[in-house]
Design a protein around this nucleic acid. Structure first.
Lengths: 142, 142
DNA sequence: ATAGCTGCAAATGCTTTGCAAGGCC
DNA sequence: GGCCTTGCAAAGCATTTGCAGCTAT
């Protein structure tokens, strides 16, 4: 009655993993579903783990960490640094920028973000190249 | 022969601390000297502690952490988030932006930084105001 | 079969904290 | 003197790692 493991698994997630050279295991498939099924998300390892467990997915926190890093290396996720204590991961890997709600510890895309422009960025110093440009607009309660 | 403790201490550091409502203790004076005597600096607690110890200043790492945070709250320092594992402090509290050398874990001001402009930043969402805008140009070895 | 994953628990690394001793006003 | 500060060591947290058992191919 449960011969196939992939029945309730999003095919695109599996394909995505294969392309990235990652074995589509149950945990990775299920996490990928959570991550990529609904628009852009911003989450921490704890957050994702809690959500997974809440939905009945059996996965350890260590695996969530591993998976997030593997996905990041594979280019499926982007890691955003806004808080000294937590690491945020963003499912939107296209160049874009963020609002960070300092009081809530919440990260969000800047709406219409393609309009934000950073001008006059100097050339990268000799021997280096720009890896990426991060813009974070920090917000606090009014 | 050592009645006065403030002999070799930078007067401006003491004044700075008094204005901030912080008692000018030996440790705070000496750390302030290291921090503010020579232009803009970017350092971590470890870095500063090592430097202090190297110069014969007796101070514990815990006090360095406390002092960095007190200075930050007093507006003498600014905390910059670029690395999930380390907290950087910047002695330049004026709005400006950074290069981050990912390979070396080194943070630096963007030269001529006043020329970098961030355009079309949307208004802060209702109930919030912009605390600050951080721009980090991440560099990697070529 | 076997190389790659997962989970647990222990380890790590940065940072914070409790509290007794010491310093500043 | 009284309150603030320091230092040490212990505690705290998020994250990583070692390794035995499990899984995808």
């Amino acid at each position: 009655m449960r011969k196939k493991m992939r029945d309730n698994t999003n095919e695109s997630a599996v394909a995505r993993l294969r392309e990235a050279g990652l074995r589509p295991t149950r945990q990775r498939n299920e996490l990928a579903d959570l991550l990529f099924k609904e628009g852009n998300r911003h989450l921490t390892a704890e957050t994702l783990h809690a959500e997974a467990v809440g939905k009945g997915i059996r996965v350890s926190l260590a695996t969530v960490y591993n998976t997030l890093h593997q996905f990041t290396h594979a280019g499926l996720l982007r890691q955003v640094m806004v808080d000294a204590t937590r690491s945020y991961f963003d499912t939107n890997t296209i160049e874009h920028h963020h609002f960070y709600y300092e009081d809530e510890g919440l990260l969000a895309d800047i709406p219409g973000t393609e309009m934000v422009a950073v001008d006059n960025v100097p050339n990268a110093p000799a021997g280096t190249k720009v890896s990426r440009v991060d813009v974070v607009v920090r917000l606090k309660r009014d």
